[in-house]
Design a protein around this nucleic acid. Structure first.
Length: 328
DNA sequence: GTCCAGGACCTAG
DNA sequence: CTAGGTCATGGA
């Protein structure tokens, strides 16, 4: 394996909380490390005493892309200092100090959250895994893995646009023999392909997508992919817009309301003022800030938009993870 | 079998 | 403005 390694020196970084807090869905724990996909790279991350050890399956030119993704250069203490000084926030921060907000690819983030509506996180991962293994590109450095499979006398069907009809045979043919992990970065096939490009998804059909278990979200994803691939929506251009304008561009997409738009603005663009309110955060706000009071949806959103300061989205992520892990 | 999930949308009051 | 139904799927 032509692996490349480095050590990202960083303190105050909770890798577990960061990669398992419902921001990104292309990561899995593996023997004390995390294995995942960033762009076309398979990546293994391991927390050490002085930082994060990173390894990729193929050669890379520098590591700035990984520092950007993980936000290791963010001054976390400066962010935490802007949080409101109240009991709920103190408890939430104490529960997962070191949690970071990632900086993901806009298309992957938008598509992932279009798929997230009324789904449990474990199911979102499953849908995205299917989407990637069927329609994504093999990762950089994965050629050695494919060669090993080929020499084992197994066929595989890697051509673009293969039909769902060939799925069963294809899946069976590319699975490794029992017990072989071969020191590869990922054991499962679902972590061996990139997230499909907007152009790729735009070329698919509704049944192709529904076969990935995404149900009524399929037409939403397809329409979004077509707008991005056709240049009608410029995702890179959103970086230069004010928060409200960027939000308007995203919510113009069918299937993208305020919550999903805020997730994308926060997790992909770094708009820290975006404050996604899902069922968990709504529950957290009601229980922690308005105990046994009847608070309307409108007032709750107003509170969220005004109470948490310039890094409100960051505060939201602490509340979300706190609620989901500690308070059940 | 029932309830619910990092929702959005449509309609009716 | 809020309340309720609908969409598709599968964990718990």
């Amino acid at each position: 394996m032509a692996a490349t390694e480095t050590l990202l020196r960083v303190s105050n970084y909770d890798l577990d909380a960061t990669l398992d807090s419902g921001q990104a869905f292309h990561w899995e724990p593996d023997n004390g490390s995390w294995v995942g996909v960033i762009g076309r790279h398979g990546v293994r991350l391991t927390r050490t005493c002085d930082g994060i050890r990173a390894a990729t399956a193929g050669p890379v030119a520098g590591w700035q892309w990984l520092r950007d993704y993980l936000q290791t250069d963010t001054d976390l203490d400066a962010v935490l200092k802007t949080f409101p000084d109240d009991a709920p926030m103190r408890d939430a921060v104490a529960a997962c100090r070191g949690l970071r907000v990632l900086r993901q690819d806009p298309w992957e983030c938008l598509a992932s959250f279009i798929l997230s509506s009324t789904k449990q996180i474990v199911q979102i991962r499953q849908i995205i895994a299917l989407l990637c293994e069927r329609f994504g590109e093999p990762l950089v450095g994965a050629a050695a893995i494919w060669e090993r499979r080929r020499r084992a006398g197994q066929q595989h069907h890697n051509e673009p646009g293969y039909s769902p009809a060939g799925r069963q045979r294809s899946q069976a043919s590319i699975s490794l023999p029992d017990g072989e992990t071969s020191g590869t970065l990922s054991q499962g096939n679902h972590l061996s392909h990139s997230f499909p490009s907007p152009e790729k998804i735009a070329s698919l059909t509704d049944p192709d997508l529904r076969a990935c278990k995404m149900g009524f979200r399929a037409p939403y994803l397809l329409a979004a992919a077509q707008k991005v691939a056709g240049g009608e929506l410029d995702l890179e251009g959103l970086r230069r817009l004010p928060l409200a304008a960027a939000r308007g561009e995203l919510t113009a997409l069918r299937g993208v309301g305020g919550k999903i738009a805020d997730c994308v603005l926060l997790f992909a663009y770094g708009f820290d003022g975006a404050f996604p309110v899902d069922v968990w955060v709504a529950r957290a706000l009601r229980e922690l800030y308005f105990p046994r009071r009847r608070v309307g949806d409108q007032r709750l959103r107003h509170f969220a938009a005004t109470h948490f300061g310039p890094h409100a989205g960051y505060a939201q992520q602490y509340l979300f993870h706190y609620m989901r892990t500690k308070m059940k």
